[in-house]
Simulated assay, not measured.
Amino acid sequence: MTSSTFRIGGERSVRRLGFGAMHLPTAPGPARDAAIAVARRAVDLGVTLIDTAHLYGWGANEELLAEALYPYPDDLLIATKVGVAPPDPPHDAAICGRPDFLRDQVEQGRLRVDRLELLQLHRVDPEVPLADQLGTLRELQVQGSIGHIGLSEVTVAELEEARKIIDVASVQNRYNLLDREHEAVLDACDAAGIAFLPWRPVHPAVSQATTEIVAVAAELGATAAQVSLAWLLGRSPVVLPIPGTGTIGHLEENVAAASLRLSGDQWRRLDRIQPRRAFPSTA
């Protein structure tokens, strides 16, 4: 039976079904209050892995989580990401892997912790040598500001290169039942025991699900989204889905997917579904 937990970096144990905080509203008002309630409910439901990034509201999402959850429970890991510069008119937001920029984003302290337990490079900057980008994060790790280092939206070749520079604890690429563009990256993580955090773990088209998804959902008394998450959890023990939502009802539905059990036949039927084209987005 597949474990419901995973040790990130071989050290930090989390429950495999996490929570993505990207969609939580951060502007003052009732929507923010509701977002705080969602974050707190996630922890109440036993979620121990929450994903955020400096890009999400340019630090506002991190500040929201700190307001909602600090001081953090001992078993809660909040993963964040750095490496995207905010817009500076006339310039748009842009990937930035300059060592000074990465160091500044890490040290801003919006999560109110001295050590970021999992810090992921949001995107590889093609204009900066990878050794300089990851070398900076490794220096911060040695200094105690970072616990584990991960990557986001990388190729197999980039992952291999990165592993020559740092111990890669996680990879966060887009992946789900209907979008398996990064199948090879997941396979590489599986072989190396690296946590794979699929962002957008439920494809937008699952609401117009295929006959097979509808059939499996009916057999289990579940939703198509829950079946999609259950398929991911059965794909590999290194997969840690991070579905996001802004409502407590949807959150509870997602978390319940962790207890959904697909039979071997059901999983194989889903696995044979032809993947669809990806929907472009950022996470």
Rank of each mutant, 00 (worst) to 15 (best):
S3W: 01
S4C: 03
T5M: 12
G9T: 07
R16E: 10
P28M: 10
P28I: 14
P30Q: 08
A31C: 10
R32G: 15
A39Q: 06
R41H: 02
D51P: 00
A53R: 07
H54V: 09
H54I: 02
L55G: 00
G59L: 04
N61D: 02
E63F: 00
A66S: 11
A68S: 12
Y70E: 00
L76Y: 04
L77H: 00
T80E: 11
K81E: 00
G83H: 00
A85L: 03
P89A: 09
A93R: 13
A94L: 02
F101W: 15
L102I: 02
L102W: 12
R112E: 04
R112C: 08
H122S: 13
D125A: 08
P126I: 13
V128D: 14
V128M: 05
T136L: 11
L137C: 12
V142T: 15
A157C: 07
E158S: 05
L159H: 10
A169S: 08
A169C: 01
R180S: 05
R180T: 05
E183T: 12
L186V: 07
C189G: 10
D190P: 03
L197M: 08
R200E: 13
A205C: 02
V206W: 01
S207W: 11
I213T: 01
A225M: 09
L229K: 10
P237L: 12
L240A: 04
H250I: 07
H250M: 13
A256K: 13
A258W: 05
L260Y: 09
L260T: 15
D271K: 11
I273Q: 13
Q274I: 11
A278S: 15
